[in-house]
Nucleic acid binder design. Structure first.
Lengths: 84, 84
DNA sequence: TACGTTTATGATCCTTAGACCATATGGAGA
DNA sequence: TCTCCATATGGTCTAAGGATCATAAACGTA
């Protein structure tokens, strides 16, 4: 599993995907991440500006890791058209 | 450039590193990301729980990309991920 | 060392994330 | 259809993020 994150929703998708792959309910994830079920629902749907800490807690609980790296030349993004 | 992000400070480091490589001041980044210089200072230092949106704006402006993926079993230490 | 630039702090005000409880909605199965 | 379980919504309250301005501290360098 490897996904790019450009907008919050991307993260939400990755999180939901990983959670389902592990057969966990949002309540389960709540328990092991310390993030409330209601919050998880929001995050997965990409609703609201979640804090980094919350995201990291969820990723850790799902055994997902986050990476930053220089954008590969091929990848497109709106910023290209603005500052390219 | 490729760094793992486990705690907010990891992101801060990556951001500062990328900014300096591009010879940008925090004020420059402010201009092109829309994120205030004061906020950038905080983020780079890993102080405070920044919102995902703020982070994504900075990464986009620095041409960095964020990825989520399942944690590799040979999970490296922080040191490894930074200097590996 | 004094100046100019860059980065860090501090204060205020407004907005919102997050803790928390309750409930509504949605889906799968008996 | 009626239950169960899962997920989404909604409200309250508090702590904190973020916009913004001003300034202090740090760093280079002439």
């Amino acid at each position: 599993m490897k996904n790019f994150v450009r907008i919050p929703r991307d993260l939400g998708h990755a999180i939901r995907q990983a959670r389902l792959e592990k057969n966990l309910t949002q309540a389960d994830l709540d328990t092991r991440s310390g993030v409330w079920q209601e919050m998880i629902s929001k995050v997965e749907a990409g609703r609201g500006g979640t804090k980094l800490d919350t995201i990291l807690a969820l990723l850790a609980a799902l055994e997902l890791e986050l990476l930053v790296r220089t954008r590969s030349k091929g990848s497109t993004s709106d910023i290209d058209s603005i500052f390219g």
